[in-house]
């Protein structure tokens, strides 16, 4: 793994990283899987771990993917590369954007269009995993119902499903 191409990919991901973790996870997935750097199952594992470790999910995912691909140097490079553009743009444009006033509302509305599209893409790329087995389908549907219609914290949903997976692995070897 070439550290420079790792840095470039994560820098690019950072530029479009609007709207929170799941947008970024979707872009990381398409960029990394598209290059054949990591397998589908390997990536799902990394995202599951990112969810249950402290810190922003997108950062955790970047650190883990970097680590898998190139060890600790890879982890450092991916983490710094994914935050490089956000850091620079905040340094350069905070006072400018703060002065935009009403126009900033329009910008944020327009960003919602792109963000919803990217979350839809993330969902699309994860759907085959949900359809891959009965257990996955039921867990995904249950998670959707709990997260969409109740105030259950996502962490409990993830840990609960992990617990179910653990028990099943002991019962059905």
């Amino acid at each position: 793994m070439n550290l420079l191409s790792l840095a470039w990919v994560f820098f690019k991901i950072g530029i479009a990283a609007y709207g929170g973790g799941w947008t970024i996870v979707g872009i990381i997935k398409t960029e990394i899987l598209g290059r054949g750097w990591i397998t589908e199952a390997g990536f799902s594992d990394l995202v599951a771990i990112s969810q249950v470790t402290p810190g922003p999910v997108a950062l955790n995912a970047a650190t883990l993917v970097g680590y898998r691909l190139a060890g600790i140097p890879g982890a450092a490079v991916a983490t710094l590369a994914v935050v490089a553009f956000p850091i620079l743009s905040i340094l350069a444009a905070t006072s400018l954007l703060a002065r935009l006033g009403k126009a900033r509302g329009m910008l944020q509305e327009a960003l919602k269009t792109g963000t919803i599209a990217l979350v839809a893409m993330t969902l699309w790329t994860f759907l085959p995993a949900a359809a891959s087995s009965w257990t996955s389908g039921v867990l995904a549907a249950g998670a959707f119902a709990l997260a969409a219609f109740t105030k259950t914290h996502p962490l409990f949903i993830i840990l609960g499903a992990g617990g179910i997976g653990l028990v099943l692995s002991l019962l059905v070897p």
Binding site: S44, V119, L127, A129, L139, A141, V167, S169, L170
Partner: peptide, 19 residues
């Protein structure tokens, strides 16, 4: 088993966010 279960909820959580 734990990781498989934890990963299985991802489409559901993303779907709920989209919703």
């Amino acid at each position: 088993g734990f990781l498989g279960g934890a990963a299985a909820v991802i489409p559901g959580l993303v779907g709920a966010l989209l919703w």
